[in-house]
Design a protein around this nucleic acid. Structure first.
Lengths: 232, 232
DNA sequence: GATTCGTTCAAACGTTTGTTTGAATTGTAC
DNA sequence: GTACAATTCAAACAAACGTTTGAACGAATC
């Protein structure tokens, strides 16, 4: 019994993160106990507090490790768009694709937990948990400023409030799209077309249709006061 | 000290329901304890188990009392549409308005807890809690069958799977729209236009734009095989 | 081989959880 | 006023919670 069974010593951290990610999606933050996490990860109960400090810090780290990379990709996609345009205004559809396309690509990755995490993320926007939402707001601040600014410039005739709301609606549609298969099967029993590859064009058509929709009456009036003509 | 202070004896039930509804929205199901509920309602700790049996049964009753009425209104709105059409096919926009308009009307009622409940409902579709979701599926079965059927007939050229997905996306957008102000303020600090009266036309424009959007490539091909031309 | 540092471990900590209990209190009918 | 049923109450229940502790372990460094 001289050779140790454990192959790589400090994989405990990542095993905890992976196990917690799955359990949080399945049961939620509060309903997932430390004992559930550690027993699924195959580590000692005290390991979470040793490696992360507390349960809340573990939750934060789960979001941090995924969101940092996702938002980096988003900013890179926007940078690329702006570089290719060379000063010209961007097409709204390209902006939307840069933001939501990267998210859907991560959600399509079922092998490395990307899908699991995106389901968790979509639910968390509306989650009541205070500190998680505050953390999300900070993590998203830069990306949202960049993308909303790009949309404002791409749609100069549309009131900014309207763009903000529609962006918010799009986030909701995406959240449900990713979380979706489970909820959809409740609605329609004979439903089996959950192919993530088809989800992308499906959702993108819907999002762009919503973004380009005629403005509601009040916003329409306000827009005409400014001399604009069409929403998108 | 002969006259009792308590005005109406069996209002304990409704006081518990109202208090729990608010707390569930603020903190979620798991993070809301029986002691928080009963102390906010001003009743004894044992009252919940006496009147409802358990915490889970209380949650179910909260959804039951609101959803029964909401779905009754939805079916009535659809009945009225079909009666006025007199056999002719309905306009998709009218169907969507019948379904989401009633929900938004309830969400606009801030005085009798309708707004609070709709925020709770929108979050619960994607909630991991098993028994709540199963209960929701049962409670929604009839309404969804009626409305999806109406949409299928109103859009005979659009593949049913596509309609199902878009309906799902619309639910997501609505959920975020109602839960929305809090989340939006995280995104944009200088955001104050949360007037629920303006939310209705805003969301409806977006939803109809998404529903009428051109079909994605694959669905487009399938539709043309059937001989259709336009999505909506 | 002894020392040191990072990590793991079993056990226990004090709280808080949902629920139950049995007595006290209330409203209603006789 | 007495009897009865419904409701409220303070108190306690076992179970589960997140976290802490101090000893044991492992692999390096000298």
């Amino acid at each position: 019994m001289s050779t140790p069974i454990r192959p790589h010593p400090p994989e405990t951290r990542s095993r905890i993160l992976d196990a917690a990610e799955v359990l949080f999606v399945e049961h939620g933050f509060e309903a997932t106990s430390m004992r559930m996490i550690t027993s699924r990860a195959g580590v000692n109960l005290a390991a979470v507090n040793y490696h992360f400090g507390s349960k809340d810090a573990l939750i934060q780290e789960i979001f941090r490790r995924r969101l940092t990379e996702l938002n980096r990709q988003r900013l890179a996609a926007l940078d690329k768009l702006e570089a290719e345009a060379g000063g010209a205004t961007l097409k709204p559809s390209h902006i939307v694709e840069a933001f939501f396309g990267t998210a859907l690509a991560l959600a399509a990755d079922t092998e490395h937990g990307g899908h699991t995490f995106m389901r968790l993320l979509g639910r968390t926007y509306t989650e009541p948990n205070t500190f998680v939402r505050q953390f999300l707001a900070e993590e998203y601040a830069e990306v949202l400023e960049r993308f909303l600014g790009a949309l404002y410039r791409a749609l100069p005739d549309v009131p900014r409030e309207e763009i903000l709301w529609r962006f918010h609606f799009m986030m909701g549609a995406m959240s449900y799209a990713i979380a979706g298969t489970d909820a959809l099967q409740l609605f329609a029993g004979n439903f089996d077309d959950a192919d993530p590859a088809r989800l992308m064009p499906r959702l993108m058509s819907f999002l762009l249709g919503g973004l380009r929709a005629p403005l509601p009456d009040h916003a329409e009036l306000e827009k005409q006061r400014r001399g604009g003509r069409e929403a998108a």
